[in-house]
Write a protein that binds this DNA or RNA. Sequence first.
DNA 1: ATTCTGACGTGGG
DNA 2: CCCCACGCCAGAA
Length: 109
Amino acid sequence: MADTGFFKKVHETAKLIPYGRVTSYGAIAKYLGAAKSARMVGWAMNASHNDPDIPAHRVVNRVGLLTGKHHFEGTNLMQQLLESEGVEVVDLQIQDFNTIFWDPTIELL
DNA sequence: ATTCTGACGTGGG
DNA sequence: CCCCACGCCAGAA
């Protein structure tokens, strides 16, 4: 729970991620003004399990790698969800990451 | 109370 | 270009 301002902001931002788009933990962290606390973003996503409206599968690390895939059910649920949205993913690596990348600091500017 | 780890990122060598 | 170390904050052992 820990509905701290930080967690809440992360959840809000995550919910704003458009369909077929992806963002990185650092991007959200920077948008919140805590670029160095990118880890906390991931931690906040962990709490997002309580909020099914939060597409955690659309949040990856800065390289577009599905690092958090291990936290999802099954073995390739995260990748499957992304591919379902039209995102090209090969071996946990998002293709054209720069193209589908959604930066809150720019899009929500 | 202390220590380590963790869905990351940046910087220095 | 690749590898290592540090910072951040919170939760678990």
